[in-house]
């Protein structure tokens, strides 16, 4: 449960010198990024600091103008979110990317449906609905998310927290290397936010690292092992949430406080 600070571990996902311009606007300016195995990395920054642009590059939704993305130290080139997914990176988008009229099970497998084996699947393209339902149910029960009958419910009948749960379950079901979560608690009430945070810790316990982008400082400080602070298009600090206060983080984020010395970046001092 502690920050994996002690053992030096090579980053799972890394970015070096990312640059992305939109016309004359420089959204990110030589930004770096490191995600270590099994950690929850909080990413914070003021609006317009370029954190969503960076995340979109990591998730394959945007291509950088310069710089590179590495997985396990090897450069990767994502041309689309599909490429990133094939590499094992799943993203829970802020809008959740769920299809409200379809059922929970259908949403879990949307875009990667399974067909029945044999001729029925190959020729008639018949979906393996029972199989997908069963697996969706298993996934959700493992995460303690839903009662059994609900995999056939349309997603629009679920509450905001439950929808978030489905999106998380989908990401963890298919994400083999990294899960990126963009503002997972922004639309949720207090109780539902708690549930999602708990879910994140659970996913972490299973050994899957999470990138958590959030404006909600208490949430970030509660679950993150390290906090990546983005300012004016680049990473200016990585802090240990146990060694710094939230107001420090806000001060660094807004430029009111000087970032801690560079040795803090990378390895937080062992406790």
């Amino acid at each position: 449960m502690n920050a994996p600070g002690a053992a030096p571990s090579a980053p799972v996902l890394q970015a070096r010198g990312l640059v992305k311009r939109f016309g004359k606007v420089v959204a990110i300016d030589h930004a770096d990024f490191d995600l270590k195995p099994g950690e929850i990395l909080g990413v914070i920054g003021d609006n317009g600091a370029g954190k969503s642009t960076m995340i979109k590059i990591l998730a394959g939704a945007l291509r950088p103008d310069a710089g590179e993305v590495l997985m396990d130290g090897r450069p990767v080139h994502f041309r689309s979110p599909l490429d990133a997914r094939a590499a094992g990176i799943e993203t829970v988008y802020q809008n959740l990317a769920l299809s409200p009229a379809l059922t929970v099970a259908e949403n879990m497998f949307l875009g990667r449906e399974r067909r029945r084996p044999g001729l029925v699947g190959a020729f008639f393209r018949h979906l393996d609905r029972a199989g997908m339902r069963r697996e969706a149910r298993e996934r959700l029960t493992t995460l303690g998310l839903l009662t059994v009958q609900s995999v056939d419910q349309p997603v629009e009948t679920l509450s905001g927290g439950q929808r978030q749960g489905i999106a998380v379950a989908r990401a963890t079901a298919f994400g083999t290397r990294v899960v990126i979560m963009d503002e997972p608690t922004a639309a949720l009430g207090v109780k539902e936010s708690r549930k999602v945070l708990e879910l994140m810790l659970d996913v972490k316990r299973r050994g899957l690292p999470i990138v958590l982008i959030s404006h909600n400082m208490p949430h970030v400080f509660e679950v993150a092992d390290r906090v990546h602070i983005h300012r004016l298009g680049r990473r200016i600090a990585i802090i240990d949430p146990k060694a710094h206060s939230m107001s420090d983080a806000v001060a660094i984020m807004t430029g009111a406080m000087k970032p801690p010395p560079a040795e803090a970046i990378g390895e937080p001092p062992p406790a």
Binding site: L145, T147, T157, R194, K195, L201, V223
Partner: peptide
Amino acid sequence: AAATAEAADATPARAE
């Protein structure tokens, strides 16, 4: 984190 565990066994709120 551990203190939030009680939130976990609270049954998920069904849609109102």
